[in-house]
């Protein structure tokens, strides 16, 4: 299995119960069935502004973002200090922690083998979006 199984909206087979589950008798739990957990609503904070990105490389392994993981990136969130962001440097997408204190802006990797990125003269940095979730597959990895 080289690819993760797609997560599909609207078809999530998890049911949240509002009461304790009893066995044996005509299910009293049935009366307590709530609506199903909607992972789609949970993971896409702002659906129209959410995009998926595939991770390549090891620069963020320190916080559990691995090669092949899938990130949910939200463009509606205003980037702030200490958030994990999807930035663009030299026209390439990169995922890093945003360090911003006054004029001091850096992109910090979560892996000691990678130096923080500070902007050189003439280099431009755009924050494309803020990373909200990492979809990391644990089965059959």
């Amino acid at each position: 299995m080289t690819h993760p199984i797609p997560y599909l909206p609207g078809e999530v087979p998890l049911t949240l119960f509002g009461g304790a589950v009893c066995a044996g008798f005509p299910s009293p739990a049935a009366d307590y069935a709530q609506s199903k957990i909607d992972l789609h609503a949970h993971l896409l904070l702002n659906e129209n502004a959410s995009y998926l990105f595939r991770v390549r490389g090891e620069s963020m392994t320190g916080i559990g973002i691995y090669d092949g993981d899938t990130l949910i990136v939200d463009r509606s969130i205003t980037p702030a200090h200490n958030q994990i962001v999807l930035a663009v440097i030299d026209d390439e997408f990169t995922v890093k922690r945003l360090y911003r204190r006054g004029q001091d802006v850096r992109l910090i990797a979560e892996n000691t083998a990678f130096a923080p990125i500070t902007l050189k003269d003439g280099q431009e940095m755009t924050i494309w979006g803020v990373v909200t979730f990492n979809l990391h597959r644990l089965l059959n990895v």
């Binding site: 995009y51 998926l52 990105f53 595939r54 991770v55 490389g57 990130l71 390439e92 997408f93 995922v95």
Partner: peptide, 12 residues
């Protein structure tokens, strides 16, 4: 980029 699981954009 936005609809196909196998064609998502990459980031490093």
């Amino acid at each position: 980029y936005t609809t196909n699981w196998h064609e998502l954009p990459f980031c490093r």
